[in-house]
Design a protein around this nucleic acid. Structure first.
Lengths: 245, 245
DNA sequence: CGTTTGATTGACACGAGTCAACACCAGTGG
DNA sequence: CCACTGGTGTTGACTCGTGTCAATCAAACG
């Protein structure tokens, strides 16, 4: 029984028992984080790597006028600072959107593992490629899709990413974030986000109540939103491409 | 006298003569590309690396409805596919916006250089970090800035990036792209882009004629656009932080 | 010269933002 | 046990930024 960080990486490479064991041992220092806390701030040069094990976090930048743009969601199993292994300062922030469990992984351990096990290095490499690919898809989302498709697309992405780590049960997943957060991720206002969500419900595409999001029909919301899961590069080898059913 | 690809990387690390020489030799196979041609397409697994030596190219994705979102400009000195050294397929396209000179660099040469010279590996690593940072800033741009600041911000970014490779003379630089391209990069319509550009001219922030962009006052347009060059990580060591004057 | 590509205008429609009020719920403390 | 609170979701009315459509203009070009 390994943790979710290991399970996520295991999607990207066929680890040996020793590799699995090494990753699990490196990520066993887990700490609790409250809602809305800062995990990493601009300018930080973290001395350990941070992996979210439970709850939702996000990358974000704040603007002088107080608005915030969320750049990516950091989901269970994701690293907050995969690239920071080598001397570099954060140019954005990481904050928790819900209560979180965060694993603190010593850089030395991670470097030792990547040095010794090419498969681990490759899995980390791959996951950073995926992260960049997600950023590019978000650019398309913000630049060229209207509000409804924008939010729909985001919800599809979360469905696939959460399914990859076993966090989708049947048709639903936990979405422990506020409408403000969806607004800040999609570049919309809260009010409009609220109306668009209602519209998506009225269309029978989703249900959203008490932090649980239900996907009524994945194909429907995918085609409505122009979502194509290819950019998530889920199959770094084998693996299913559809999260539901 | 080394080429612009080498000069750009030299901003990021203090190369020895041998390293400079190696990079220059690896990037000497330069080919001509016409306007609007595709350099790399989705799904490609390039067998060589591509560096733009002259002219403007861009990363982009096309949507089913025919619209296009530009994800990044590939300027002289930039690699099109820095990450593709290791087995991976392109998930977006690279196209030329103007006539270009593109260097074809054998993967083997580049790998040999990075293996032998840590400084080269670090410079390439750093430039890929910067590229990611640019993508994040673009997310802020598309998500949270109104049209005027959005375009202004883009023009500031181009000014700094071009200045870093010596392509800004005095107050001006060559901008060999169409308004359509600016529109596709900023998520606006061409018509509105045109009106916003006129507004920026009327405000005395820029002049734009015949492919030459003149920055009337860098501090003015920076503060107007909310631009802060920090995200470009220009100083991977030493180096000025302001491009003009 | 026609043709073409890109820049520019005007009129109009509509998506999305803003402001302000209200509803709902969980927690808290008197 | 109940008023009070703060956070979040929901509404309505109104404004405004941006998109769309269509026409015109200017420069480049064979």
């Amino acid at each position: 029984m390994t943790n979710i960080f290991v399970r996520k990486l295991a999607n990207l490479a066929a680890f040996s028992p020793e590799e699995t064991e090494g990753l699990a041992r490196a990520s066993c220092d887990v700490r609790q984080i409250g809602v809305g806390e800062r995990i990493l701030g601009e300018g930080d040069m973290p001395r350990v790597a941070h992996a979210v094990m439970e709850g939702f976090a996000c990358r974000f930048k704040s603007l002088p006028d107080g608005t915030r743009q969320i750049l990516d969601f950091v989901l269970p199993g994701d690293l907050c600072d995969g690239h920071m292994l080598f001397m570099a300062a954060m140019d954005h922030n990481i904050g928790s959107l819900s209560a979180c469990h965060v694993a603190y992984i010593a850089h030395a351990d991670l470097l030792a593992l990547t040095g010794r096990h090419a498969r681990i290095a490759r899995a980390l490499w791959w996951s950073s490629l995926v992260q960049e690919s997600i950023a590019r898809e978000w650019l398309v989302n913000l630049g060229r899709r209207p509000a409804g498709q924008r939010i729909g697309h985001l919800l599809c992405e979360l469905c696939f990413r959460l399914a990859a780590v076993g966090l989708v049960q049947g048709q639903e997943y936990q979405l422990p974030i506020r409408q403000t957060d969806i607004a800040d991720a999609t570049g919309l206002s809260v009010v409009h986000t609220n109306r668009v969500l209602q519209d998506l419900r009225r269309r029978g595409l989703i249900a959203l109540q008490g932090g649980t999001l239900t996907v009524e029909s994945l194909p429907n919301i995918e085609s409505f939103s122009g979502f194509d899961s290819g950019y998530l590069h889920a199959t770094a080898g084998r693996g299913a491409t559809t999260p539901l059913g």
